[in-house]
Each structure stands twice: as structure tokens, then as C-alpha cells.
Simulated assay, not measured.
Amino acid sequence: MPVLAAPLLDALIDRALDEDLAGGDLTTEACIDASARATAKAVARGPLVACGGAVFLRVFQRLDPEAEGEALVADGARVDTGAVLWTVRGRARALLSGERTALNLAQRMSGIATEARRYADALPAGSGVRITDTRKTTPGLRALERYAVRIGGAHNHRDSLGSAVLIKDNHIVAAGGISTAIARARARAPHTTKVEVEVASLQELDEALAAGADIIMLDNFTLADVKVAAARARRSQHGRPLLEVSGGITLERIPELAAAGVDVISVGALTHSARSADIALDLAL
């Protein structure tokens, strides 16, 4: 499961490194001999799902092309406090200068993978419902964060505005209504593209069903209304659309929503509220 094409990954890492190193590293350059070499290991300071080993190593290789590393656990592995995740050996200056950037990225990715795993594990056994992320990602880090979501056992929603038709509330206002928006999307979008529409009430659901939406997102529906919506979708004369539920999703609601008849549960919290994992870098000569 590749993290990102190498040129794109390197560009992302270089931008992150530049935040720390545009003016050099005064402390390291003053204290550490240029020829010194060292080994560093990334250690979990709490239970987590490991993610980002390749990114972690690549940060140091951007500063020291001869740096070498090893992943002691695979991405997706659950580890306990004290587990050594990855090691890297190279010029001591590179390890010290890249430490924060490497940890920032790996901690973020591992934190998201850990949160995604919690949500995926909350699904009832044998459930075919998908937990997905949203576009509520950190600007510039979407590819890494979405990789972490997959590593955690969840799925990705549309990657960008150009990858799918998703008619939301403001599109409906601007177009003049649900039916009009769906009709225009059908007429102008590629024939290979499904049409999804967000609805905020059972009345809007009925309109979306009548207009033949392929996917209907139930936004901030109560559990009772989700069940009603699922029953209406099953009886629709226009074919049963996929049902997605979104808005106000918490971990505790996953089992009941999965049992209510929906196909997808989209959770912005997988990325926008995930807490970075606690990982430390221990250096030795």
C-alpha cells in the first residue's frame, strides 16, 4: 500500500523540513561534529497502531542520502508502550535536525491509524458497512492522512472535488433545489460518475429518491429517522440507492447506525480530531 509517489513525498517532506531548517540548525551545527554518526530508534510511549515507517525514514534520507533504516513493526500493527517501531542510522547531524519533522509526520499518521482502528473495530462482527473519512484533512497532508485511515482499517471517501459528484446543501441552494441539482449533474457529469446528494430531512430524502440519486447522504439524522430513511430507500421505485450517514458521528453510535440499514458511515473525526500518537526518538552513538 504505497504512501505516496516518491517525487510527491519528497516535495512534501522538503516543505516540512524547510519550516525547521530554512536558517540551518544552529544548535546541532555548533555542538556536533560533521563526521559523527549515530543510531536512533522510534519508541512508542503509549499503545498505538503503527503507521508511517517509510515516511519516517525518508525524512532522514532527505538530509543524509546514505541513512539506512529498518521497520521493526509493519504499518497497521498494534503495539504497546515501549515498543521500538523503526530504527535509522546515519550522520548524527541529520538525525538531530530531522527528528522533529520525522516524528511530527509519523505521530500524526499513527494517531489517525489508531483512531480509524477504533472506529472499524466498533462495527458489529460480519458487518458490510464501511467507515470512511472525509475531506476534513490537514492542508498538504491529505495523502498521508488518508493512507493512515486505510492502515487503520477504514476507507477513504472522495479524494478531491474532481473525483466524484457530491451535491451538498449549498449546491442545492445555488442550483434551486435537489431535483434540479441532480438533473444537471446527470446531464453534465461523465457517464461513469455516480451522483450523491446530501439531505437534511425525510422530505429531502423523498425528493432525492424521486430524482434517482445513486447515493444519498443522511446529514445529522437521528437514529429513528435513519431507520425510516433506510426503509423508504428499500421500497423506492427508482432503485435502492446507497445510504451514507454523516454528521455528529461518535464511536458509541457506530454499532446502532451500522444495524440501521446504511451502507457507509463517514466520520470527519478520523482526521480532523485524531490525537497524534506519542512517539519518542532515542539517539545513541
Rank of each mutant, 00 (worst) to 15 (best):
139 P>Y: 07
142 R>A: 00
216 I>N: 06
147 Y>K: 07
211 A>D: 07
122 A>Y: 12
216 I>A: 06
131 I>M: 01
154 A>M: 02
140 G>F: 02
174 A>V: 08
209 L>S: 04
152 G>K: 12
214 D>W: 12
148 A>V: 03
130 R>H: 06
151 I>N: 11
129 V>F: 02
140 G>N: 07
180 T>H: 12
194 K>D: 07
134 T>C: 08
132 T>L: 06
130 R>F: 06
143 A>S: 12
158 R>Q: 11
178 I>F: 12
134 T>H: 03
154 A>I: 01
184 R>Q: 12
138 T>Y: 02
127 S>N: 12
122 A>G: 08
201 S>Y: 12
203 Q>D: 15
184 R>D: 01
198 E>I: 10
187 A>G: 00
188 R>K: 11
145 E>F: 06
215 I>S: 15
166 L>G: 10
183 A>G: 04
213 A>R: 07
176 G>I: 01
129 V>H: 01
163 S>E: 02
203 Q>R: 14
133 D>I: 03
117 R>K: 11
211 A>N: 05
120 A>G: 12
161 L>Q: 13
123 L>E: 04
159 D>T: 09
176 G>M: 05
193 T>S: 07
137 T>P: 02
197 V>K: 11
130 R>N: 04
117 R>Q: 11
118 R>S: 08
120 A>E: 00
178 I>G: 05
161 L>V: 12
208 A>P: 03
211 A>T: 04
166 L>E: 02
200 A>V: 14
206 D>N: 15
184 R>V: 04
117 R>S: 13
181 A>I: 03
124 P>A: 03
178 I>N: 02
126 G>P: 08
177 G>S: 05
117 R>N: 13
205 L>K: 10
157 H>N: 07
179 S>Y: 03
135 R>L: 11
190 P>S: 11
171 H>L: 13
141 L>I: 05
164 A>E: 09
122 A>H: 09
130 R>V: 04
200 A>W: 08
172 I>K: 01
171 H>G: 12
191 H>V: 05
172 I>N: 07
164 A>I: 10
117 R>G: 04
139 P>C: 09
174 A>M: 15
158 R>T: 11
147 Y>A: 06
196 E>P: 08
202 L>N: 02
192 T>Q: 14
138 T>W: 03
196 E>K: 13
136 K>A: 03
150 R>G: 14
184 R>M: 11
192 T>S: 15
206 D>Y: 00
165 V>M: 11
186 R>H: 07
189 A>T: 03
173 V>R: 14
121 D>P: 00
189 A>C: 13
185 A>E: 01
156 N>T: 02
184 R>W: 04
119 Y>A: 06
129 V>N: 02
138 T>C: 05
130 R>L: 10
120 A>T: 05
183 A>H: 00
160 S>P: 00
187 A>W: 00
180 T>A: 15
126 G>K: 04
138 T>N: 04
134 T>R: 00
156 N>V: 01
144 L>C: 07
147 Y>V: 09
178 I>D: 04
144 L>P: 00
204 E>Y: 11
178 I>A: 12
138 T>G: 02
212 G>V: 01
199 V>K: 06
125 A>C: 09
177 G>T: 02
174 A>Q: 14
126 G>M: 05
154 A>E: 03
136 K>M: 04
217 M>V: 10
172 I>H: 03
181 A>G: 04
173 V>E: 14
121 D>L: 13
